[in-house]
Simulated scan of single mutants.
Amino acid sequence: MARLAALKAALLILPLGALPAHAGPPPEPSGYRLDDYRAPTPATLAGATVLDTARAEALWKQRGAIFVDVLPHPPKPAELPAGTLWRDPPHETIAGAVWLPEVGRGALAAATEDYFKRSLAELTHGRREQALVFFCKKDCWMSWNAAKRALGYGYSQVYWYGDGVDGWKGAGLALETIKPRP
């Protein structure tokens, strides 16, 4: 018996009731996430509708919303030797989506915020009641930030698809390679 107790202590085996509880998703912050964007996201976004893959697919099939991918655009590596040909890596996303890179950061440069506002206004033809689905990848705060920002701009039908391209691809749904919206 003493040997079993010593073995448990050596292996740090805890009784089942002593296991730490799963923390679950983080709470919804009052502002934007400013860094460490690839981390667990909240389960909610005040003012927006949170979508799982089945509900996102239903909206997509009905063509009932504009799908907005906010994943950042990969920069040209700074260490490339001068004269090296650089080709942007392909960007695979939900078929029919629009890619607005960089608009999901917590703090936006004035030019990026203008780009985001202008793009949303053009995509929705100025109709702030137009349904918008924001996404990027699973456990990525950029889509959460972008959806929150769109709410702040006065858009009333904002959806957040937190599983993003990862959830869509995992369900075997249609993907395509696209370029960023100018």
Rank of each mutant, 00 (worst) to 15 (best):
T53I: 04
G24H: 04
P42D: 12
A6T: 02
Y32T: 01
R3N: 01
R63W: 04
R63H: 04
P29G: 01
P20Q: 02
T41N: 02
P27I: 05
L34M: 07
D52H: 15
P81Y: 11
D88Y: 10
P40R: 02
E92H: 08
E79G: 03
L71N: 01
D52L: 02
D88C: 06
G83L: 14
I66T: 10
R55F: 09
G17C: 03
L85Y: 05
P75W: 02
D69K: 03
L16D: 03
P77G: 00
A23Q: 03
R55G: 15
P25C: 08
P81V: 11
H73Q: 14
P77T: 02
P75E: 03
P81R: 13
D88I: 11
R87T: 03
P15N: 01
Q62T: 11
A23E: 09
I13K: 02
P25R: 00
V68H: 06
A54D: 08
P42H: 08
A10M: 05
V68P: 14
P72I: 06
L16P: 04
Y37T: 07
E92G: 08
H73I: 13
E57S: 07
P81K: 02
R33I: 12
G24I: 13
L85N: 09
H91S: 03
A5Y: 08
G83V: 15
F67W: 03
T84F: 15
D36K: 00
L71H: 02
E79V: 09
G47T: 05
A39K: 05
P74M: 08
P25S: 10
F67M: 09
L45E: 09
A23V: 13
G83P: 13
R63G: 06
